[in-house]
């Protein structure tokens, strides 16, 4: 999808904080109703979201101004899969901007009675929310809902497909630490096949001129991934050599039960990140993880607690990034 980025003027963002609400209002809105994935965002849109997230972060102390931003607007979260950090992060972001937030209790709602996704969507449309944040076990479910509702649909994770706000907060963190998104070497390690986080990060970073290397057990890393412009490394040492950022994915332990890898021990030995392995990366490399971590499996405990790890920064930045997304979809011009 092509998107007009002409007229995007980066100057106002830095002014926004000092100018308060009016400054934020001058920012041009995203020319899209929904945020469904990183795949169809342009690099300009990504940078815009990150810039506005910066404003939001800077303005956090000025709660009164922020809470005027989206006053009177409503946000519903609909999580068909468990989540703590993503849902609470959206809730905090919405409330910080003055929105009323409803957390739909999916397990006790009509869905448990067998209501179809289409009818759920039509019901959400009739209630009339301004934005709907959805997490669903089925890839494409947010896209499906977006066709039926006039509200802005934000994908908070769909099946094995995408988790765009996670990728945005990760890019935000990367840019914050490294000062740029181009000219970096980023290694993503783990279960690439089943990871929506990996897909969103790959789609997002492939818009910038950085080197992307993926590595993981071959049963969880189909060869066709090389068609996305990423390098597939056979050994973890090869993947992280000289890397600026090491992104560790959570290994879902139930994958072992279906025979995708033989044992936790072998996985930890071959693909686990340790302080020793990090030495192969560039000197100021950072280690990221979307959480929740399996300490001692994909990441060694001492590494997770070291200053190399930016895992808690990621969580903190999540709120600002989600505020930026809400603002750019609902509030700005």
């Amino acid at each position: 999808m092509s998107l007009s980025t002409q007229g995007v003027n980066h100057a106002p963002y830095t002014m926004a904080v000092s100018a308060g609400l009016d400054g934020l209002r001058q920012i041009k809105k995203l020319e899209r109703k929904d945020l469904l994935g990183m795949h169809d965002l342009s690099s300009e849109e990504v940078e815009l979201i990150l810039d506005v997230a910066d404003c939001m972060k800077g303005a956090m102390s000025n709660a009164n101004v922020l809470s005027e931003c989206l006053r009177g607007k409503s946000l519903a979260t609909a999580f068909y899969e468990p989540s703590t950090r993503t849902r609470t992060s959206f809730e905090r972001a919405g409330k910080a901007l003055g929105m009323s937030v409803t957390n739909l209790q999916i397990d006790v709602s009509s869905v448990a009675k067998g209501e179809s996704l289409k009818d759920t969507a039509l019901t959400l449309q009739s209630v009339g929310y301004d934005a709907i944040v959805i997490r669903h076990w089925a890839s494409g479910a947010p896209h499906f809902i977006a066709k039926y509702v006039s509200a802005s649909v934000i994908n908070a994770g769909d099946g094995m497909h995408e988790h765009p706000t996670q990728a945005l907060l990760d890019l935000y963190t990367m840019r914050k630490v490294k000062g740029r998104l181009h000219g970096l070497k980023i290694a993503i390690i783990g279960d690439i096949l089943h990871s929506r986080v990996a897909r969103s990060i790959i789609f997002a970073l492939s818009k910038f001129n950085s080197e992307l290397v993926v590595c993981g057990p071959p049963t969880m890393l189909p060869r066709a991934f090389s068609e996305f412009g990423v390098k597939v490394a056979k050994r973890i040492e090869e993947a992280i050599e000289g890397a600026d950022i090491i992104y560790m994915l959570r290994i879902q332990l139930e994958r072992q039960r279906v025979g995708l890898f033989p044992s936790i021990g072998e996985y930890a030995k071959l693909y686990g990140m340790t302080l020793e392995r990090v030495r192969l990366a560039s000197e100021d490399a950072i280690v990221m993880h979307p959480g929740p971590m399996n300490r001692g499996v994909e990441i060694a405990s001492d590494l997770a607690d070291s200053e190399k790890a930016r895992i808690l920064d990621q969580v903190t930045n999540g709120v600002a990034v989600r505020m930026a997304v809400l603002w750019l979809l609902l509030g700005s011009q």
Binding site: H39, S139, G140, D158, G159, M160, H161, E162, L193, R196, R199, P222, A224, F225, E227, F228
Partner: peptide, 12 residues
């Protein structure tokens, strides 16, 4: 079909 499009859409 398995391949690039399935991977991109997150479908089995």
């Amino acid at each position: 079909n398995s391949g690039r499009v399935a991977l991109s859409l997150g479908l089995r």
